[in-house]
Each structure stands twice: as C-alpha cells, then as structure tokens.
Amino acid sequence: MDWRANLVEDDVAVQDILRQARRVAVLGMRPESHAHKPAFAVPEYLQAHGYEVIPVPTHEGAGDRILGKPTYRAVADVPGEVDIVDVFRRPEDIDAHVEDLISKHPKVVWFQLGIRNDAAAERLARAGIRVVQDRCMKLERMKLAETEAGTSAS
C-alpha cells in the first residue's frame, strides 16, 4: 500500500475516524488551570461527548491527574491500545515525539488546527499510522454531530 493513503484529508474519512474512535491520548494536554486554552478545552469537550481521554502533558507542573484521569509522560507509556493521539505541540516540536508515537502505533495521529508538519506526517504514514493535519477534533466532532442529526431528521 502507498503510504500516502494514510494521509487523511477528506471530510468523510475524518468523520469515519471520529465515529470509530473511543480512546484518545492527548499529547501536550494542559491542566484545568489552563481551561481557557484549546489544549484543555478540546479534550474536555471530547470527554463530555463519550471519548476516553488520556492526558499526556508535555509541560512541567501539569500534575498527576487531568480531568480526573492519570497523566502519562509519553504516549508509549499509556496502557492498552489508543485510537487517536491528538497532538497539541508546535510543528517544530513534533519531531521529538515521532519515535514515541511510532512505538505506540495508534490508529491515527491528529495534528490540531494550525499544526502541520509534513515530514513527521510522512514518517508516521510510512509506519502505517493514519495522519490528520491542521484540523480541530472538537470542530470536526461538532460537524459530525450536525451531519448525524440531519440524517436522523430526514
């Protein structure tokens, strides 16, 4: 299979990912003290909408628990399978996490809105991991809910 097929860019594929996923590790998640930041607000929204959120903070002082869940220092440390790793890191900081992501081998690595690192995306895709770049999981989940509400209303 061509590794480029793992680069997810179309809306239908993004919605399928969100429908099928249950466990989301959040790399770069912020604690409750940063509730105004997307790196806390997005995972909080996901948790409220049925996803199991696993915090993987990268900043010192994040604490042992966020949203009532234990924190992990690396994605590879998260027990069990992970459907999506939602990444809240600057594009230039992602390279330092690629080996950790590949060793965990989640189904999808998702770079949040405004985050794009084509070289890292290629390495992940070549390792057989699907990659979504420059999209907000919260906004995409809201679009999915609207789509499903429209479908059930017809």
Rank of each mutant, 00 (worst) to 15 (best):
L7C: 14
L7P: 06
E9W: 09
E9V: 04
D10E: 14
D11P: 02
D16L: 10
L18C: 12
L18Y: 02
R19M: 08
Q20M: 11
R22Q: 11
R22N: 15
V24G: 03
A25E: 07
A25F: 02
G28N: 03
G28P: 06
R30H: 13
R30M: 10
P31M: 09
E32C: 06
E32N: 07
E32V: 03
H34A: 14
V42L: 01
L46E: 02
Q47M: 11
A48C: 07
H49M: 11
G50E: 07
G50D: 07
Y51G: 07
Y51P: 01
V53S: 05
V53I: 14
V53R: 00
I54G: 04
V56C: 09
P57S: 01
T58G: 11
H59M: 13
G61E: 12
A62P: 00
A62D: 06
D64L: 03
R65E: 12
I66L: 04
I66A: 05
G68Q: 04
P70C: 09
R73E: 13
R73W: 02
A74H: 12
A74T: 08
V75D: 04
V75F: 08
V78L: 07
V78C: 08
V78F: 12
V78S: 01
E81V: 00
V82E: 05
V82N: 02
D83H: 02
D83S: 12
V85R: 06
D86F: 09
F88R: 05
R89D: 08
R90E: 13
E92W: 10
E92R: 08
I94R: 00
D95R: 04
A96T: 11
H97F: 15
H97I: 04
H97W: 11
V98Y: 09
V98T: 06
V98D: 11
D100P: 09
L101M: 06
I102Q: 01
S103P: 06
S103L: 14
S103C: 08
K104D: 14
H105P: 07
K107C: 11
K107E: 12
W110V: 11
F111L: 13
G114I: 10
I115D: 04
I115H: 02
I115C: 03
R116L: 13
R116T: 15
D118E: 09
D118M: 14
A119R: 15
A119W: 12
R123I: 02
A125E: 02
A127V: 03
G128I: 10
D134H: 10
D134A: 09
C136K: 05
M137L: 07
K138E: 14
K138C: 02
L139A: 12
L139N: 12
E140A: 08
R141S: 09
R141A: 15
K143V: 06
K143F: 09
T151L: 15
S152Y: 12
S152T: 14
A153I: 12
S154A: 10
